[in-house]
Amino acid sequence: MFAFLHKYASLMHFYRLSARWSGWLALATALLMAYGLYGGLVTAPADYQQGDSFRIIYIHVPSAWMSLFVYMCMAGAGAIALVWKIKLAEIWLRASAPLGASFTFLALVTGSIWGKPMWGTWWVWDARLTSELILLFLYLGIMALDNAIEDRRTGARAAAVLTLIGVVNIPIIHYSVEWWSTLHQGPTVSKLDRPSIHIDMLIPLLVMAFAFTTFYFAAALARVRGGILAYDRNTNWVRDLVGRGTVRGHG
């Protein structure tokens, strides 16, 4: 089994195999985004209570979900990097951090914009908002730590350690609205019960979440491919690839 996985972990193989994925992921993102935006802004009915302001949900919730999902991907990659010292895992972790930070920022900002008309305030220090803000600081800290360390591999490993330390924040964010009294309401979709959102409103939300996910993989993949070339810069396969006269990028 490990032999099979090791083939994918081989940087050269991954670089070659992933060449086509980027295109498909970008296309999928564009289509899903278009469909989700149309659904969210046009076809979904306005909310009985929040009116059209609720449409911010189509940005806010996918961003928030991604802020957690990307962190878990980084934690997984970090664990693999630390235990099995797989370079691809190091590269994936490093590539994901700015994306995760962006999603967290987006969740916080759109949440704030949504909160002003609905709650009556731009910000409160309740458990949900505070823990999500801590997540942003974690992402930034991971990126700073990685950047501060000269050696690429040591930097990635330090980042992995910090990522794993911060993992405890993820369940805190999710369960904050249940464990403590918060201004932010409880979960609408990610709970064991039936989703408490009308189906016509739910479908664009799921589509947007899917679109954000393919976006993450597309963008991370681009960074990963660059990272692979940097890691393997002195190998023959990279020299062949690069020295072939034309610089092969994405047209």
Binding site: Q50, W119, G120, V124, L183, Q185, G186, H198
Partner: peptide, 12 residues
Amino acid sequence: VLAKHDENYMPP
């Protein structure tokens, strides 16, 4: 005074 709304979303 802040309004707190629940997690339910539905058309009127």
